[in-house]
Design a protein around this nucleic acid. Structure first.
Length: 272
DNA sequence: ATGGCCCGTAGAACGGGA
């Protein structure tokens, strides 16, 4: 029985058109096996399939014009074909493309772009909570079907005070309101583990920094992008880190990637 | 300082993001 290392990442690119070069450079130096992308902002006809094929990745995507849009990239050498692909969340029937799920080598991979919510009490905030409730129920069923499940994405929720640069200022604000935090805890209650918190981490570790106010340089961020793992995958997780250097590049996304490394026992691994 | 930036759609500002 061989041990296979599998790297899973999530990154909100804030327009894949603008960030494609960053993505290609990243995977050239660090060939992550499974990459969940959010805010691609591309209709499917414009998805850069060819550039990613040349880079060694199969692309799954669900896009719309101007907003939202999610994708899963699968490294051809190390990951098998995708199966049971889903783009819709039961109970949410609109044009917003925020979910993409696929089964790869027996692992259920869920890429999620949670609604932002705009402001507590707004219609968009209500939509956010409704969307998460629908996701919760769907994930409950998925976890019955799959022992190995990972949900990676932009959750737009900072789970705890230590995930916020200034918790007092952010308390009760969108991204750090109690109903949102409770919804996040609800997902953990399904048996999912926050990959980043499986390990001791330094303080002030964030995944998003506002473009304004020199927020990145001032370390004024939030940890809102997450990789949650089913119990079985959590047991196989060896590290989980934030690629903050990506936020320091020229013309960066305002989000940094999060990467988890799993060590899986497997009988066969294509290409290795 | 009741904001500052970035992206897409525009074809000028404006909605949306977080």
């Amino acid at each position: 029985m061989a041990i296979t290392a599998l790297k899973v990442a999530t990154w909100n690119v804030n327009s894949l058109n603008v960030r494609l070069a960053h993505l290609l450079r990243w995977v050239q130096t660090d060939p992550v096996d499974i990459i969940c992308l959010q805010e691609t902002k591309l209709v499917d006809e414009n998805f850069p399939v060819e550039a990613l094929t040349d880079a060694g990745y199969r692309s799954l995507f669900s896009g719309q014009k101007a907003y939202n849009g999610v994708a899963i990239l699968l490294r051809q050498r190390t990951v098998g074909e995708a199966d049971d692909i889903r783009t819709r969340l039961p109970g949410i029937d609109d044009e917003q493309r925020r979910l993409l799920a696929a089964t790869v080598d027996g692992i259920r991979v869920v890429c999620a772009y949670f609604p932002n919510g705009q402001a507590v009490g707004s219609d968009k905030y209500s939509y956010k909570l409704k969307w998460i409730a629908s996701l919760h129920e769907w994930l409950r069923a998925e976890l019955q079907r799959y022992r190995q499940l990972v949900i990676a994405g932009d959750f737009n929720i900072a789970p705890e005070a230590r995930d916020v640069h200034d918790p007092q200022a952010w308390e009760g604000q969108v991204l750090f309101s109690e109903p949102e935090r409770a919804a996040f805890r609800g997902l953990l209650g399904l048996g999912l583990k926050d990959g980043f918190r499986l390990f001791d981490q330094p303080g002030r570790m964030f995944t998003w920094w506002d473009y304004r106010n020199l927020a990145f340089r001032r370390k004024q961020g939030l940890r809102i992008d997450h990789i949650l793992l089913s119990q079985e995958l959590a047991a196989s997780c060896r590290s989980c880190s934030i690629q903050a250097e990506m936020r320091a590049l020229e013309q960066p996304s305002d989000h940094a990637p999060v990467v988890a490394t799993l060590e899986l026992a497997s009988g066969a691994s294509a290409g290795d």
